[in-house]
Amino acid sequence: LKGYACRHCFTTTSKDWHHGGRENILLCTDCRIHFKKYGELP
Rank of each mutant, 00 (worst) to 15 (best):
L1V: 15
L1K: 13
L1W: 07
L1T: 15
L1S: 13
L1G: 14
K2D: 13
K2Y: 02
K2V: 13
K2N: 12
K2F: 10
K2L: 07
K2Q: 09
K2R: 08
K2W: 02
K2S: 12
K2G: 09
G3M: 09
G3H: 11
G3K: 08
G3E: 06
G3F: 05
G3S: 09
G3C: 06
G3V: 06
G3Y: 06
G3W: 03
G3Q: 03
G3T: 10
Y4G: 06
Y4M: 14
Y4I: 10
Y4T: 11
Y4N: 15
Y4Q: 05
Y4W: 06
Y4L: 09
Y4H: 10
A5Q: 14
A5Y: 09
A5V: 12
A5S: 13
A5K: 10
A5F: 15
A5C: 14
C6Q: 00
C6M: 00
C6K: 00
C6A: 00
C6P: 00
C6F: 00
C6L: 00
C6W: 00
C6T: 00
R7L: 11
R7Y: 11
R7T: 13
R7K: 15
R7F: 07
R7V: 10
R7W: 07
R7S: 14
R7P: 04
R7I: 07
R7G: 14
R7C: 11
R7Q: 14
R7E: 15
R7M: 13
H8E: 03
H8V: 05
H8Q: 04
H8C: 05
H8N: 15
H8F: 03
H8W: 12
H8P: 00
H8S: 09
H8K: 03
H8D: 01
C9A: 02
C9L: 01
C9S: 03
C9N: 05
C9H: 01
C9R: 01
C9W: 01
C9G: 02
C9I: 03
F10D: 10
F10P: 04
F10V: 03
F10T: 10
F10R: 13
F10G: 13
F10L: 11
F10S: 14
F10A: 15
T11H: 04
T11S: 10
T11P: 01
T11G: 05
T11E: 02
T11W: 01
T11Q: 04
T11L: 03
T11V: 07
T11R: 05
T12K: 09
T12S: 06
T12G: 04
T12L: 03
T12D: 08
T12I: 15
T12Y: 01
T12H: 02
T12N: 05
T13E: 14
T13W: 04
T13G: 09
T13C: 08
T13S: 11
T13A: 11
T13F: 07
T13R: 14
T13H: 12
T13I: 04
T13D: 13
T13P: 02
T13N: 12
S14V: 02
S14C: 04
S14Q: 02
S14F: 01
S14K: 11
S14I: 02
S14D: 11
K15A: 09
K15Q: 12
K15P: 10
K15G: 07
K15L: 08
K15D: 10
K15E: 13
K15C: 04
K15V: 10
K15W: 02
D16G: 03
D16A: 03
D16E: 08
D16W: 01
D16L: 02
D16R: 02
D16V: 02
D16Y: 01
D16S: 05
D16H: 01
D16M: 02
W17S: 07
W17D: 07
W17G: 08
W17R: 05
W17C: 04
W17T: 06
W17V: 08
W17E: 07
W17P: 08
W17L: 07
W17Q: 06
H18N: 09
H18W: 06
H18Q: 15
H18V: 12
H18Y: 10
H18P: 03
H18D: 15
H18M: 15
H19I: 12
H19D: 06
H19L: 12
H19Q: 13
H19W: 06
H19Y: 05
H19A: 12
H19R: 12
H19V: 14
G20K: 03
G20T: 04
G20F: 05
G20H: 06
G20C: 10
G20Q: 07
G20W: 08
G20P: 03
G21H: 12
G21R: 03
G21D: 05
G21S: 11
G21M: 04
G21W: 01
G21C: 07
G21V: 06
G21I: 01
G21K: 03
R22F: 11
R22C: 11
R22L: 10
R22W: 09
R22Q: 14
R22H: 06
R22E: 13
R22K: 15
E23F: 01
E23I: 03
E23S: 07
E23L: 06
E23D: 14
E23C: 08
E23W: 04
E23R: 05
E23N: 10
E23H: 07
E23G: 09
N24P: 05
N24S: 13
N24F: 05
N24R: 08
N24T: 05
N24V: 04
N24K: 08
N24D: 12
N24Y: 05
I25V: 13
I25M: 08
I25P: 08
I25F: 06
I25Y: 07
I25Q: 10
I25R: 06
I25T: 12
I25S: 07
L26Q: 03
L26S: 03
L26E: 08
L26C: 15
L26R: 06
L26Y: 02
L26T: 12
L27D: 01
L27M: 06
L27E: 04
L27P: 02
L27Y: 04
L27G: 01
L27R: 01
L27W: 05
L27V: 04
L27H: 10
C28P: 00
C28Q: 00
C28W: 00
C28H: 00
C28F: 00
C28M: 00
C28V: 00
C28G: 00
C28Y: 01
C28K: 00
C28E: 01
T29Q: 10
T29Y: 14
T29G: 09
T29V: 08
T29N: 11
D30L: 04
D30G: 12
D30P: 11
D30E: 11
D30R: 08
D30Q: 11
D30C: 05
D30F: 03
D30A: 09
D30Y: 11
C31T: 00
C31K: 01
C31G: 00
C31W: 00
C31P: 00
C31M: 00
C31R: 00
C31F: 09
R32A: 13
R32N: 11
R32W: 15
R32Q: 12
R32G: 13
R32S: 13
I33W: 11
I33E: 15
I33S: 14
I33Y: 13
I33Q: 15
I33R: 14
I33G: 15
I33D: 15
I33K: 13
H34P: 00
H34C: 15
H34M: 06
H34D: 04
H34Y: 10
H34Q: 10
H34A: 12
H34K: 05
H34N: 06
F35E: 14
F35N: 05
F35V: 11
F35C: 07
F35G: 04
F35Q: 11
K36V: 12
K36W: 08
K36E: 13
K37G: 07
K37H: 07
K37S: 11
K37V: 08
K37T: 12
K37M: 10
K37N: 10
K37D: 13
K37C: 08
K37L: 07
Y38I: 04
Y38G: 07
Y38H: 09
Y38D: 09
Y38C: 15
Y38W: 11
Y38E: 14
Y38K: 13
Y38N: 15
G39Q: 10
G39M: 03
G39D: 15
G39C: 08
G39E: 11
G39Y: 05
G39F: 02
E40N: 09
E40M: 07
E40S: 11
E40F: 02
E40D: 10
E40T: 10
E40G: 09
E40Q: 13
E40K: 12
L41D: 05
L41G: 05
L41T: 12
L41M: 09
L41E: 04
L41Y: 06
L41N: 03
L41F: 15
L41C: 06
L41I: 02
L41P: 05
L41W: 04
L41V: 05
P42L: 01
P42A: 03
P42G: 01
P42M: 04
P42V: 02
